[in-house]
Every structure is written in C-alpha cells, then in structure tokens.
Simulated scan of single mutants.
Amino acid sequence: MSNILSEAWDWLGQPNRWSWTDPAGIPYRTVEHLSFSALSLVIAAALTIPPALWLAHSRRGALLASSVVNIGRAIPSFGLIILFWFLASRWDLNTDFWPLLIALVALALPPLFTNTYAGVVSVDADAVDAARGTGYTEGQIMLRIELPLSLPVILAGARVAFLQLVATVAIGAIVNDGGGLGRYIVDGFAQGRAGYGEILAGGVAVVVLALLCEGAFTLITRWAVPKGLTIQSARQPQVL
C-alpha cells in the first residue's frame, strides 16, 4: 500500500500535472469534467422543469412522475453510454462528445422531473387559492407562487442529479477520449501494475470533486432559497 501511495505522490508531482492547458493536467481535466456535468444538467433542466411544472400545476401526470423515477433507477448509466456510443458511431457523429452528453442528460431527467413535480404538488393550496383570488393568471401562479415555493425541492433534485453526473463522467472515459478526471483511472488500468498510482490519484480526485460539488450546492441552496422556505421544505416530500 505504501508503494502505491508513493507512486500516486510521484504521479502528482510530474511537471505537467497541474497545467490548465495540457490534457495531462488535473485542472484541465477538472474543467472538462465539470463542463460535461454542468452542460448536461442545464439541458436536462430545460427539458424537464417546464413540463413537470405545468403537469403538477394542472394535477396531471402523477403516474408519469412515478414511472419516470422508477425508470431512472433501473437504467444502468454505463449501458446508456455504450448504447449512444454505438449509435453515434453508426451515424458518423462525434463519438468524443455526443454519446456521453446524451447519456448524461438522460440520467439527469428523472430526479429533476420527479422533484419538480413533487415540489409543486406539495405547495400549500391556500397560497395558490389566495393568488388566484387576487387575479393572478395560471401562468403567474406557476412562476410567482408554485415555482419559488417548490425551489428547495427542485434544488435537491438538481443536487442529486449533478452528483450522479459527476460520477458518470468518470465512467464515460472508458468510451470517450475525454472523460474528465476518469481519464486517469482508465489510463491507469491500461498500464497494469505500473498504473496503480495514477488510478489511486484519479479516484481521489473524483471523490474530492464530488465533495466540493456537494458543498457548492449547499451554498447555492442557502443563497437562492429564503430561510423560511428552507425550513418549510424539510416538511415537503422529496422524490429523489
């Protein structure tokens, strides 16, 4: 074990290991890792939050919400990546970008959809009725009442989705020339015993990044959600 730790330390001390421009650098791979994760989350949110908000407001799609979360739990992330890589290669698409991106978006859809739906459904009906009584349109009720009040639950779903994306980008390095920090793990396995130090360093880097992202989402939630709503959200159901 001490030899592996020494190898990992030596690997971390290589001259190009902390470069922002060299693909061998940890900062370079970290930016790549976060870029894939953040872009996937934004696309998934744009695809799921509006329809989930409308369905929950109109009290439709309860069965759909339940089915989505169950499907999301059953889909193997690596299987999705392989499937989209195969389809992209058959259709002459860029296999370094599209397979991983589409797979990540698909993985982020269930928690975002179900948490948005659950958050809006759990909004106090009296608040909605009061807004409707003062002349708010249905669209205004969704955007000014239901969306802000369900924000803590939606952000909880975004946190779960993003952490899942961070973990899956690393797996994607198996079929992707990028793959962020997971590139080190894959390259280390390819070297056999000589790559154990790189595998350990890459694994620790992924764990540290996930912990930092968890902390960042906690800060975002505290900043974006008023304290009263945060307390109230503890009583609301969260379908993760």
Rank of each mutant, 00 (worst) to 15 (best):
T116F: 07
G180Q: 03
D92Q: 15
T48K: 05
S233V: 08
L12R: 02
F217T: 02
A103T: 09
T95H: 00
T95G: 02
A103Q: 06
R90P: 00
L104D: 13
L100F: 06
R29I: 00
L212W: 07
D92T: 12
T137W: 02
P152W: 01
F78S: 06
S150P: 05
G202T: 03
D187M: 14
L83C: 01
L209R: 02
L5E: 02
R73M: 14
L112A: 05
G188T: 11
F84M: 11
R132M: 10
A234C: 01
F97W: 08
Y184M: 12
I71D: 11
T218P: 00
L64Y: 05
G203H: 06
I174N: 02
V239I: 14
A24R: 13
E214P: 00
V153Y: 01
I82T: 12
P152C: 06
L143P: 00
W223Y: 11
M142W: 11
A201V: 10
P226T: 07
G139R: 06
N115E: 13
L165W: 08
L151N: 03
V31T: 07
H57P: 00
L112T: 12
E214K: 09
S67Q: 04
A156Y: 02
T95A: 10
L109P: 02
G79C: 02
D126K: 11
W98P: 02
L181V: 11
S40P: 01
N115F: 04
G228S: 11
L212Q: 08
L104K: 07
W11E: 08
G25L: 07
T218F: 12
L209E: 06
L63Q: 06
L147R: 01
V42Y: 10
V206Q: 03
D22Q: 01
P99Y: 06
Q14L: 13
L143V: 14
L165I: 03
V208L: 14
A52N: 07
T230V: 13
L34G: 05
D124A: 13
L112D: 08
A190Q: 15
G179D: 07
M142N: 00
A201P: 08
P50S: 09
D124M: 11
T95P: 03
P111I: 14
P76F: 12
L104N: 11
I145A: 10
S77D: 13
S2M: 09
A205E: 02
L53I: 11
A38C: 13
R29W: 00
F189E: 13
R144W: 11
A108C: 12
R60N: 10
G192P: 04
R183P: 00
T114I: 09
E7F: 07
A118T: 11
A103C: 04
T137R: 07
E32G: 08
I82D: 08
A190V: 12
D177T: 15
F97M: 10
V153H: 04
F36W: 14
A118R: 02
G135S: 07
L163S: 04
L163N: 04
L47I: 15
A45R: 08
I75M: 15
W11R: 03
G203V: 07
W91F: 15
A46M: 15
G180K: 03
V175W: 09
G172N: 00
G79I: 05
W20Q: 04
F86Q: 13
S122A: 15
G172L: 04
I43M: 03
D129V: 13
S89Y: 05
L109T: 10
D124V: 08
T137M: 04
